[in-house]
Write a protein that binds this DNA or RNA. Structure first.
Lengths: 135, 135
DNA sequence: ACATTTGCAATATATTTTATTACAGTATGA
DNA sequence: TCATACTGTAATAAAATATATTGCAAATGT
């Protein structure tokens, strides 16, 4: 539902990792990414659901990391923000009377599943700390 | 600009590989995928540009493979239909005054480039023939 | 000639993403 | 205790993108 989900989430987490002891407001975060604070809060809601961050309401409230950046892999972030990476499906139901049409989506799914496994392996070796250290 | 580009293209190519000696019409192909013939022709135009297929105009015209399915890798199809796979970027320019905002897109690009290399390697080992044999 | 097909551009529709608005609820501190 | 600064969430609007349709010129086989 948000196609920049991964990018937005990793941006948020990078900022949080830079100030691990502070509660950062969605407004402050939104300012760094030039994005509407409501969208930031929507992604933070997702991070909270996954127990990666916690938020404090009210004045001086905000969000901070619940886990050390070295314990958060990019794969975990990937899995939180994507169902799967795909190279796409045709929008319409293919013709079930055609042998190719009948099976194409299943075969594409299998292919994409393999791709996702590879991406996961690759991202599993990179921590938020690694990523954050590049800034 | 067509998000189902890869799926549509591989569907077209699979059909062509099943009838390597016939010229298949865009109408016939569209019928298998329940898609508008104009969109099929649009993807075929792309395939022609890449010298994978040839078309014949006029009555009994259509499209057929120019190369054996065993010589066409999924990586080649991938590269024809995608710029790159990404996990997305935030739509707006990030804040250049923020150290994170300033560099986030470059760092994401690097990450995505690594992912693309992996996907390419993986897809390079699968031919259209392999894919087609699953039907 | 005529039917059938590609090629392509222009336009319209549908879908998905992103942005905005609105407002209730919660903590802080003057 | 009241104003202020936050979060949380839903509803709606706007923008961007993808897909579909229409229309017509040009090519080819019969």
């Amino acid at each position: 539902m948000i196609s920049g989900k991964f990018a937005i989430t990793i941006h948020i987490l990078t900022l949080l990792s830079k100030f691990p002891d502070d509660y950062l407001s969605s407004d402050f975060i939104a300012g760094s990414m030039n994005l509407h604070p409501v969208l930031v809060r929507k992604e933070i809601a997702n991070l909270k659901k996954n127990h990666i961050v916690e938020s404090k309401e009210g004045k001086n409230g905000g969000t901070r990391l619940l886990k050390s950046a070295s314990k958060i892999t990019l794969d975990a972030i990937f899995k939180m923000t994507f169902d799967t990476v795909t190279l796409g499906f045709s929008k319409n139901e293919p013709n079930p009377d055609c042998p190719v049409g009948k099976q194409i989506n299943k075969n594409l799914e299998n292919l994409y599943e393999d791709i996702n496994k590879t991406i996961s392996l690759q991202l599993n070796d990179i921590t938020l700390e690694d990523f954050s250290n590049k800034f």
